[in-house]
Amino acid sequence: MTINILLTIFVGLAAGLAVGAGFVAFLTVLGVIPRLTQLTKTNKYIHLLEWSVVLGAVTGGWVSLRDSIFFLSKYWLVPIGLASGIFVGMLAAALTEVLNVWPILAKRVQIEDKIIILLMALVLGKIVGSLYHWIYYVSQ
């Protein structure tokens, strides 16, 4: 019995370690956090931001596994939705950048100076696609 418990703890810890390391590695590769510190000039507080990511992951993991319920007003969902949207948007932007789409596209189309217009196409596409998905597509 004790062996079983110890083994389960060990497996759980190992799985968590692997997932956590993978998550941080993914964030590091995309470079979202350095970009945010660069924008807000908070390089000095980078370890605080690290803790925010760690605590966020732990809290998210805990509440989703324990099925916690907070019984708060539904208007709390607005800032949460906005924040999660910005985060996913930054990941998406970082991905298109990592894939080197932009420099090649700009070269091929020969409109280096109009690249902002094409960037806006991508941004508006994401917003409209997402809204369409939630409002119409899911109820089909």
């Binding site: 970009r35 607005v78 939705g81 998406a92 994401k126 917003i127 809204l131």
Partner: peptide, 19 residues
């Protein structure tokens, strides 16, 4: 939708912020 509409606008905002 109360969660999803701000989420959708956040998506665009996050991309703009990144660039």
């Amino acid at each position: 939708l109360l969660l999803q509409i701000p989420y959708s606008f956040g998506l665009g905002l996050g991309m703009i912020l990144f660039f």
